[in-house]
Amino acid sequence: MASGSEQGLDTATEDYDSLIATTDVELLKQAWRNEKAAPEILQFQASLIQRSREQIQLMEDTVEEFTENGTDPLTVSLYQMDLDRTQFLLRSYLRIRLQKIEKYMIHISRTNELWNRLSEQEQRFAKRCTDDMEKHLKQSVLSRLPYGYQSILKQSISSEEDDMVPEPQLDTFVFCKSKGSVGAFQLDDSGDEIVDLVGDDLYVLRYKSIKALVERGQIDLV
C-alpha cells in the first residue's frame, strides 16, 4: 500500500504501515505481474496470499474504526484507496490464475508439475471445470462420433499420444527484468545463443528459455 498515507497518524499505525509498505505489497505486485505475463500457470503464492488477506482485514478494521471515531475523511479515503488497490491486486491475481485454469484445464490436470502449483481450492475448481467441460464435449460431439473416435484426449484410437489437448505456448516472448546479475545465460539447448543478464536491464526473451529463472525468482516478468 502506498507509503504516503501515514501523515498525522499515531506512531503505532505508522510502524504498521511502514512494515507493509516494504514487504508484502511489493511481493504481491510482483507475483501479479509474473502471473499476468507468464503463458503458463505459476506456483501459487500461498503464504503471501494468506498474509495479504490478513493485512487487508486489518486495514478494513482500521478504516472502519476511523469512520466510526470521526477521523478526518481525507485520511479515511486515502486509506480506503490504498485498501482498494491492494484488493484489486489480490483479486486480479487470483482471477488471472482461474482464467489460466479455465483455458488449459485438461493440460493442467494431466501434468503433475502444473497440478501441484495450484492451491487446494484451485485444484477443486479445476477438477469441477474439467468434469463440466468433458461432459459438455461428450454430450455435444464425442458421443455422436463413431466408435474409436470418441476420446477427448486423442484424435482417434490409433493416435499414440494425447494429441487433442490445448497447451500454453511456452515459446512466446516475454518482457523481463533481471533482479541481480545472473551472468552468462544459455538461451537454448544447442548453446548457440548466450545472453549476459545484467541486473535491472530489460530483456525480451522466449519464456521457455528463462522459465527456470522465473521459477527460482531470479528474474521478474514485467
Binding site: L98, Q121, E122, R124, F125, R128, C129, D132, M133, K135, H136, Q139
Partner: peptide, 13 residues
C-alpha cells in the same frame, strides 16, 4: 447447462 455448471464451479471457489 455448461454455463450453469461452470458458473456454479466458480461460485463454489
Amino acid at each position: 447447462e455448461y454455463f450453469r455448471n461452470h458458473s456454479a464451479a466458480l461460485m463454489e471457489y
